[in-house]
Structure formats: C-alpha cells, structure tokens
C-alpha cells in the first residue's frame, strides 16, 4: 500500500500549486505514472479520494496517464518498448541497454477554480 503515501504527496503538491494561484477548488489532477513504479491506478485514485477529504481537492478527479517501459540499446542505438520486463534489445539481443521510460511519477498539471 505505498499508494497511500504517494497519494498524500500528490495532494500536498497540488494544494501548494493551487494556493499559489489563489484557487478555492481543485477539480482535476493529471499524473504521469511509469509502469515500473508498480502503482495500481485504481488504488491510487481511491487513496487520493480519502486523503483529499476536507481539503479544496475533495472530489477532484485524479487522472493517471500510464507510461509503458521503454529502452535504448547502447550497442545498436535502437529504441524499443520493453515487453514483460525483458531487458534485452529486440534487434541485436544486447543486454547493454538503458531505461528511457517507465519510471515517471509526476504531477503534470492541475485544474482549479
């Protein structure tokens, strides 16, 4: 249940940003979450709805955009998507690869009133 701690952090980030703009209500939060983060979106939105109670983000829609894992081969320089956590270049079978996507955990933007 690391979703609860993460939901708390999301709330704090959103509240800070909204207060700076003098908002009275947060209606939507757009998140980017990489597949490697092992986050269950349904649990995250559920946890968020609990921690947001009694704040100006109560009832806000938490939108989770999931990013699949992608990699770059340092040997043949090809870019590819990593399927089933197989860290192997599909072109040249090299294991000398770096992860280029899938580790994101970011609040992208929020919508306020």
């Amino acid at each position: 249940m690391h979703e609860m701690g993460i939901a708390q952090n999301i709330l704090e980030i959103a509240l800070d940003a909204a207060k700076k703009e003098g908002a009275t209500r947060i209606t939507r939060i757009n998140m980017v979450v990489g597949e490697l983060r092992g986050i269950v979106p349904l649990q995250l939105t559920f946890c968020f709805s609990i921690v947001a109670q009694d704040t100006m983000a109560a009832g806000a829609f938490l939108n989770v955009e999931e990013v699949p894992v992608s990699g770059h081969c340092n040997d043949c320089q090809s870019d590819f998507s990593v399927e089933e956590y197989q860290y192997l270049c599909p072109k040249c079978s090299s294991t000398n690869i770096q992860i280029t996507g899938g580790t994101e955990l970011r609040v992208k933007d929020i919508e306020i009133e």
């Binding site: 940003a17 992208k108 933007d109």
Partner: peptide
C-alpha cells in the same frame, strides 16, 4: 483554469 506543475511526487523524499 489549468496550471502547469511538473513536479516529481517523491521529490521531498529524494
């Protein structure tokens, strides 16, 4: 109104 935030969620931890 939409506000750009672009903040890592675990920034405080990091």
């Amino acid at each position: 109104m939409k506000i750009n935030v672009m903040q890592d969620v675990l920034q405080a931890n990091d």
